Lab assay of single mutants.
Amino acid sequence: VTLFVALYDYEARTEDDLSAHKGEKFQILNSSEGDWWEARSLTTGETGYIPSNYVAPV
């Protein structure tokens, strides 16, 4: 399991995006899409895309 933590708040801009709150942890499901990674929030269980530069490894 690849875990990352949000460094900043991010507000989803499309229905495919996933909002993130600073300190929230995510499981990365797919990081092969360049700057946008598919992730699952460990807080809400929701999945979507987050900007890779907004997260760091735990």
Rank of each mutant, 00 (worst) to 15 (best):
V1N: 12
V1D: 12
V1H: 13
V1L: 13
V1P: 12
T2R: 13
T2V: 13
T2Y: 12
T2D: 10
L3K: 04
L3T: 09
F4P: 00
F4H: 05
V5I: 12
A6Q: 01
A6N: 00
A6S: 05
L7S: 01
L7W: 03
L7I: 11
L7V: 07
L7H: 02
L7D: 00
Y8E: 08
Y8H: 07
Y8A: 09
D9M: 06
D9A: 08
Y10D: 00
Y10A: 02
Y10R: 04
Y10F: 15
E11H: 11
E11L: 10
E11G: 05
E11M: 11
A12V: 04
A12D: 02
A12W: 04
R13C: 14
R13Q: 14
T14F: 14
T14W: 12
T14A: 11
T14H: 14
E15R: 11
E15N: 12
E15W: 09
E15I: 11
E15S: 13
D16S: 14
D17G: 15
L18C: 05
L18E: 00
L18P: 01
L18Y: 03
S19H: 09
S19D: 08
S19P: 11
A20N: 01
A20Y: 07
H21A: 10
H21L: 10
H21W: 08
K22A: 11
K22R: 11
G23R: 01
G23V: 01
G23T: 02
E24G: 03
E24F: 05
K25A: 07
K25W: 14
K25P: 05
K25S: 05
F26D: 00
F26V: 03
F26G: 00
F26T: 00
F26W: 04
Q27E: 14
Q27T: 10
Q27K: 06
I28E: 00
I28P: 00
I28L: 06
L29Y: 06
N30C: 11
N30A: 08
N30D: 11
S31K: 13
S31M: 15
S32K: 11
S32I: 10
S32R: 11
S32P: 10
S32A: 11
E33R: 15
E33S: 14
G34C: 13
G34V: 10
D35L: 12
W36E: 04
W36D: 03
W36F: 12
W37Y: 10
E38C: 15
E38Y: 15
E38H: 14
A39M: 14
A39L: 09
R40H: 04
L42T: 07
L42P: 01
L42W: 07
L42C: 15
L42H: 04
T43S: 12
T43D: 11
T43A: 11
T43C: 14
T44Q: 02
T44C: 03
T47Q: 09
T47C: 09
T47W: 09
G48Q: 00
G48E: 01
G48P: 00
Y49F: 12
Y49G: 03
Y49W: 15
I50A: 02
I50K: 02
I50Q: 01
I50P: 01
P51D: 05
P51C: 12
S52M: 09
S52Q: 07
S52G: 07
N53I: 11
N53R: 14
N53P: 05
Y54V: 15
Y54C: 14
Y54T: 09
V55I: 13
A56I: 12
P57I: 08
P57Y: 05
P57L: 09
P57Q: 08
P57S: 06
V58R: 00
V58W: 14
V58N: 04
